[in-house]
């Protein structure tokens, strides 16, 4: 095996990096691939909660790089999906606990045994981001259709390009078609035009994301909400399948009466 190492990053915080990492990891694992999701947000770990694996953590990433345990001991296996593992971050340490060289060594150790390694990057452009990005072959940049998020994503793409990352794709998260129609939100084409990288998918704003995050069950586990479908489409595009891009409607999948009700709410 020769794993594809993908960093999920954004620059700005709160745009959905962790949700995207969790859902894509689950979707890839459900397609039959072996996946390791690494939480590189040392000191502010969240991926374990979103994936619902927080109560099974014994060792973490820092323990591995410091030699306190073996890599296999720190990997938490998700019992709900075959071949899905989480390498959690340490909550009691800071970003300085890991160096870029250690991160490269760690990812290279995973490369031979898994199909995909997804790294959930912390927000910002400092050491934490650099650690997360250094070992990655590909980058998924998550942005919401807001000016501040797009600007930060642009900065991150610039940094990734300067580090020699050739494959950089964009995921537009929390897209609200009703707001776009009213001209209150940036259009996907605007975002895509500014950032000038390959658009991998558009995830609509979806209440189910909040529910699934709180429950620790990523939507890709088998839900049928619009966001769940968007994550599955993104997963298929990562796998090279030709899935046409579409800009989802947040009312999609709500049913006839709910659609009518939301129309009147407008």
């Amino acid at each position: 095996m020769n794993a594809r190492i993908i960093v999920v990053t954004s620059g700005k915080g709160g745009v959905g990096k962790t949700t995207v990492t969790a859902n894509i990891s689950v979707a890839l694992a459900k397609e039959g691939y072996s996946v390791v999701a690494i939480d590189a947000d040392i000191g502010l770990r969240n991926l374990d909660v979103v994936m619902g694996l927080e109560n099974r953590i014994v060792y973490n990433l820092v323990d591995v790089v410091e030699g306190s345990c073996r890599l296999e001991q720190a990997l938490v296996r998700d019992k709900r999906v075959d071949n899905l593992y989480l390498l959690p971050a340490a909550q009691t340490r800071t970003k300085d606990a890991v160096s870029p060289e250690q991160m490269v060594e760690l990812c290279e150790a995973l490369r031979d045994s898994y199909d995909f390694v997804l790294i959930d990057s912390p927000a910002g452009i400092e050491g934490g981001f650099k650690n997360a990005a250094v070992a990655a072959d590909e980058a998924l940049v998550v942005a919401t259709p807001e000016v501040s998020s797009v600007r930060d994503a642009d900065r991150i793409i610039g940094l990734l390009e300067s580090e020699g990352k050739k494959s950089i794709s964009l995921i537009v998260n929390r897209y609200r078609s009703s707001m776009v129609k009213k001209g209150n939100m940036l259009d996907v084409t605007d975002v895509s035009e500014i950032l000038a990288v390959k658009l991998l998918g558009v995830v609509p704003e979806d209440e189910a994301v909040v529910v699934s995050t709180n429950k620790g069950e990523p939507l890709s586990m088998g839900y049928s909400s619009p966001a769940a479908k968007a994550f599955r489409d993104i997963c298929h595009r990562i796998l090279g399948k030709d899935i046409p891009l579409k800009y989802p409607d947040e009312n999609e999948g709500k049913g006839f009466w709910e659609g009518i009700k939301s129309l009147f709410r407008l």
């Binding site: 000016v147 600007r151 930060d152 642009d154 900065r155 610039g158």
Partner: peptide
């Protein structure tokens, strides 16, 4: 090429950008 956010060009002379100059 386009200049992304965070990129700075300091030049003694004229500058012609064959692309966009993004915010930042």
């Amino acid at each position: 090429r386009s200049l992304r956010s965070g990129k700075t060009i300091e030049h003694d002379g004229d500058v012609i950008v064959l692309g966009n100059v993004n915010e930042g």
